[in-house]
Simulated assay, not measured.
Amino acid sequence: MVMLACGVLPAHAKTQKPVTLNDAITRAVSAGFALPAARARSEGAEAGVRQAGRYLNPSVGVETENFAGSGPYQALNQPETTLYLQQTIELGDKRAARTGVARSEAETTRARSAIQVLDLMREVELAWIEVLVAAAQQRVAEERLAIAQRFQSEISRRADAGRDPLYTQSRAEAQVALEQIAVDQARATARIARANLAGYWRGGPDFAVDLGVFENAVAPADGKPLNVDVALLEAERELAAARVGLERSKAVQDPAVRVGVRHFADTNDTALVAGIAIPLPLFDTNKDNIEKAEAERRAAELDVETARMALRRELTRLQARLVASATEARRIQREVIPKAEQAVQLISDG
């Protein structure tokens, strides 16, 4: 039956191809802005990786000594001017550690972007399921109305023949009225559900869905649960581990090497100068930042395990609920409706 395959829709919608879950998600993602935003964030994260791999810039400077003093050093009589180039040399694999942090941040950014896209997909899936449920409820309501109408017709025939009291005819008519109200409400609910789903791609509500998807639902096969929220926590764990390496590299002091040319004004001679400066780790060895990064890494590992346990519990609950709901729907279809039809047939035969 058309009602069984596609639910109950206006006549011009029954000939359309049913909108599957993949169709709904594809339309919603294509019409939305989550995917372009995810691409932009990914491009920004990759730029951050490239920036993290850059070497430190050298610095150039000028120093003037022995001027504006006393005696022979008055004014600019015998100044010494030095033009130098200075470069800080990173030790402790700081550049590699910095790049590792940037790559982990890029992975975290991609995971967060994926969550935003998948959140949209989840909303669409829930809206699509609401359409399925509303269509199934509308179909059941219309079948109940059809049975009530047949029952009322047979009761009227028997009452007119004097085989049943007149009050049974009134009760049957009241039941038909109640079932008609239920059908009207179910149709309105189904129309609202379709309009809500179509709003994700700015479309119209005149489309069909395949109720067979709902009626044939089974629990998914057991396997390792995959969840983007867990993937994000795993990316954050890797980021925390990378930050530990970066903080450890910062504990290594970086020397600054200087090379320059000095000019002696009194003799008009020049000479090369060179020097090196190394910070002394007397007060700050970055120990506290290392301990902080280690603690954050341990916390990130525990967050991952907590999320995995919660995911397994939720999957078990949802699988059981899915099977129970599908079983209930199939039993109503196989047991309740046939018995109601049988009752009408018995009345008709009697």
Rank of each mutant, 00 (worst) to 15 (best):
Y84S: 15
L272G: 13
A293N: 03
A37I: 06
A242I: 04
A31N: 11
E143K: 13
R39K: 10
R191C: 00
A193G: 02
L118P: 00
Q137R: 12
E105P: 02
I278H: 04
T20R: 07
A75Q: 14
G212D: 10
A45E: 00
E80S: 06
V140S: 13
T327H: 12
A114D: 14
E80D: 08
L9S: 09
R27Q: 12
L85P: 00
W201A: 05
S153I: 01
A37H: 10
R202E: 15
R144L: 09
N77V: 14
P255S: 08
Q175A: 10
E234N: 06
R334F: 11
L272I: 14
A277G: 12
I290Q: 15
S30D: 13
L91F: 12
Q253V: 15
R334C: 04
E80C: 03
V261N: 11
Y73I: 03
F67G: 02
S30Q: 15
F283S: 09
R50N: 12
H12K: 09
Q333S: 11
E154F: 03
M1W: 11
M121I: 08
Q185T: 09
Q175F: 02
L4K: 12
A159E: 09
S156V: 06
V60R: 01
A251I: 04
A96K: 06
A274Q: 00
V2P: 12
A265M: 09
A28L: 02
F214W: 13
R98M: 01
I129D: 06
P72W: 01
I278T: 04
N66E: 14
R150C: 12
K94L: 07
Q86V: 04
F33E: 15
R237M: 10
I278Q: 07
A135I: 03
Y55V: 01
R95F: 00
T20A: 07
L118W: 04
A186P: 01
N286T: 07
I115S: 03
F264M: 06
A343C: 04
Q342P: 01
R122C: 06
A161H: 00
A24F: 05
A295T: 14
A28Q: 02
T267M: 08
L126V: 14
K224G: 04
P10E: 10
D254S: 08
A127I: 04
A295Q: 09
V323H: 07
R330Q: 11
G275R: 05
S170N: 12
Q137I: 01
G44D: 10
T88V: 13
D229A: 12
L346E: 15
V252H: 07
P281Y: 05
H12R: 14
L56T: 06
G48W: 02
A134W: 03
A265K: 12
I155W: 01
R237H: 09
R139Y: 02
R139S: 08
